[in-house]
Each structure stands twice: as structure tokens, then as C-alpha cells.
């Protein structure tokens, strides 16, 4: 089924549209509020008030930087998998697994048939979109990653589990679209983990988004899509990310491996690490890629979610990104960030 274009969705984005990946860091006050709520010292309404304050802060920051597509802040302790495992039927809580160093993740168990029960992300997305005229990207974890980062006990195969999750996520995506979301991003950091399962991952994405009236992006989280032969499998989405920040990689070659029909989100600023790149260096990398593809098909983003950065660090990285894009576009900074007309009324 053909996918709707951005224009058909009422979205008029400039060349080299700028955006976050998702999950901007929670503010210190929000972290405190979450802790207080957990120990019963803060009511649900008070926590909701703090979450609204965080959302408003990040909307104003992103508008002030003149980002074209906005993203939501992460909630404190938000987990890419458990947020969905806790809400979908069929999952049971799992134990702690180490990822590296002192970083652990709770890995849920698929203990029964996976089905969608009720909206998971819709309310939070609506709350942020209500604060701005610019489009807010709805982000959710993709089916392959939800499968790969869970223990499978109910299904006989990884494929059966993955496709059941895809069907459940499709209900969530349709709920988002019904609520007004026009850009949906599926985060698939596990996509490059098993090359032999790429056909399964692609089929799961297809079942999750085929025919959905939204512009669909997939974010694979730092790992270049070009690594895994994914392009040859024709991802059934509109936009896929490519990290231009990887040591020892040729970004032009990475981009060249991806079919021109796919739009790209170019991850130009590292989300992790202490070093903040100079905007001039980022612009230079961007120019190399923009010479090879139409700029209308390119978005410019960090190379991952910024939720592990400090709020100040995240804002600084987004500022570098915007400055680099301005340099490449050759446009002067806008005199006033207000008066956006990126979304049809």
C-alpha cells in the first residue's frame, strides 16, 4: 500500500528538517517529583502538574532553538521495553539484566498471548502536541526490539512472539493517528543484532504500520542501518536513521547503501559522551551527505535519544545541530521563533 506523503498529511517541512530523536532528559524537579510520588509524598495530580511543567519547558526550548519537529521529554526511569510490557497483555515482570558497566535493564517475560489493551503513549503525546503548533513526533519502541529484549516463554518461536507484538503495536499506532499524530517513530535498537532475523524484523514493521495514515520513521539507535543489509530488504517505512558520528565510518558510503526512496534522519551529533562537536565540523559532515541526496529527503537529528544527558547538555547538543543546519542551508537565524507555519491548520 502506498504511503501518504508529508504534504498529504499537511506537513510542510523545510529541507534538512531538524528534530530530536525522542526522550529528552527529565528535569531535576521531575525526577524528584517522581521519587516523591513513588514514596507516597506527592499526589498523582501534583506529579501530573510537574510532568506538564517538564513538557512545557522542553517545548519552549525546542521552539526557541527553532527545531522543525519536536519530541517529548522522557519520564524519569522510562524504559524502552517495560513501558509497553507493563501495558500490553501477555507480559509478566522480569528480573534485572546488566547491559554494561553499572547499567541494568529489567527484562520482561512474554508469558501469554500478547494483545493491546488500551492506549499507552497517546495521552502523553497529546499533552505535548497541545502545547505547540509544530508537529510533535510520536515515538514508541518497535516490535522486533520488544521481542528481542524480552524473555519468550509463551510462544514457540521468536517470530511468533514478534508478530504478535507487531499486531498489538499496530493498535497503539492507530490510536495515536486517531488522536492526531502524523509522524510516528518506531525505535528499533535491536534491529541490527541478528542479521539472520532482518526479514522477520521487516515483516513485523510491515504488519505494524502498513496502511497507517502517518509518516513513519524507524530509529535504530547508533548502529548504521547500512551495516546490516537492511536497505536491500526495503524497510516498509518512510524514514530511517543513519548515524554520521561513528568512528572509522565513511558517512557518504553508509548513506549510499540506502535506497533513495527512503528519507533519512542523519544522526550528526553524538547523544552520548563528554565531547560536544563544533557546529562547523557537523556542518562539514552534513554537506558531504547533502551533496548526494535531495535535502528535502533529509532530516537532521542527534544520533540517539538524549535522555542520558543532562538537560543543559541535551540543549547544547540540539543547539549545535541547529547551528550546523543553518550553516548548510545558508540561512540566517530567524528573528523570531514564533509564528510557525509548519503544520496545516
Amino acid at each position: 500500500m502506498s504511503r501518504p506523503t508529508l504534504a498529504e498529511l499537511g506537513l510542510h517541512l523545510p529541507p534538512l528538517a531538524t528534530a530530536g530523536v525522542g526522550g529528552l532528559p527529565p528535569l531535576p524537579g521531575t525526577v524528584e517529583a517522581q521519587r516523591a510520588h513513588a514514596r507516597g509524598a506527592l499526589s498523582r495530580d501534583e506529579l501530573a502538574h510537574e510532568l506538564r511543567r517538564s513538557a512545557e519547558h522542553w517545548v519552549r526550548v525546542q521552539e526557541g532553538l527553532d527545531l522543525d519537529i519536536l519530541v517529548e521529554p522522557a519520564t524519569p526511569g522510562e524504559d524502552l521495553v517495560c513501558r509497553y510490557a507493563d501495558a500490553l497483555a501477555g507480559f509478566a515482570p522480569g528480573g534485572l539484566i546488566r547491559i554494561y558497566g553499572n547499567c541494568y535493564r529489567r527484562k520482561p517475560v512474554i508469558a501469554g498471548p500478547v494483545t493491546w489493551r488500551a492506549p499507552i503513549t497517546v495521552g502523553a503525546w497529546q499533552a505535548v502536541q497541545a502545547l505547540t503548533l509544530r508537529p510533535v513526533k510520536a515515538t514508541l519502541t518497535g516490535p522486533y526490539t520488544l521481542m528481542a529484549w524480552s524473555f519468550i516463554e509463551h510462544y514457540d518461536s521468536r517470530a511468533a512472539a514478534c508478530l504478535a507484538i507487531a499486531r498489538a503495536l499496530r493498535d497503539e499506532i492507530e490510536a495515536l493517528v486517531a488522536a492526531g499524530a502524523r509522524i510516528v517513530q518506531l525505535d528499533e535498537p535491536a534491529l541490527a543484532e541478528r542479521i539472520d532475523e532482518l526479514p522477520l524484523a521487516v515483516e513485523a514493521l510491515r504488519q505494524a504500520v502498513d496502511g497507517v495514515r502517518a509518516y513513519v520513521a524507524v530509529h535504530t539507535c547508533r548502529e548504521a542501518v547500512a551495516d546490516g543489509g537492511i536497505p536491500a530488504l526495503a524497510l516498509p517505512v518512510d524514514n530511517v536513521d543513519v548515524a554520521l558520528t561513528r568512528t572509522g565510518r565513511d558517512p557518504v558510503a553508509d548513506v549510499a547503501r540506502i535506497p533513495p526512496a527512503l528519507h533519512l534522519s542523519l544522526g550528526v551529533v553524538p547523544a552520548h559522551g563528554r565531547d560536544l562537536p563544533a557546529a562547523a565540523d557537523v556542518a562539514q559532515r552534513l554537506r558531504a551527505v547533502t551533496a548526494t541526496r535531495p535535502p528535502e529527503t533529509l532530516w537532521v537529528t542527534p544520533d540517539c535519544r538524549l535522555d542520558r544527558a543532562t538537560p543543559e547538555g541535551a540543549e547544547a547538543r540540539l543547539a549545535v545541530l541547529v547551528e550546523a543546519v543553518r550553516a548548510v542551508r545558508g540561512a540566517a537565524p530567524p528573528a523570531d521563533a514564533a509564528g510557525e507555519d509548519l503544520v496545516d491548520a
Binding site: 539484566i97 546488566r98 547491559i99 528481542a148 529484549w149 541478528r194 547508533r222 548502529e223 552520548h272
Partner: peptide, 13 residues
């Protein structure tokens, strides 16, 4: 250097 995925394990290094 940066974090990378450790084969298909879900762990990073």
C-alpha cells in the same frame, strides 16, 4: 571508545 552492541546478546561494550 563508544558503546557498541556485543554480538546479538543485547549487551554493550
Amino acid at each position: 571508545g563508544p558503546l557498541r552492541r556485543f554480538f546479538d546478546t543485547g549487551m554493550e561494550f
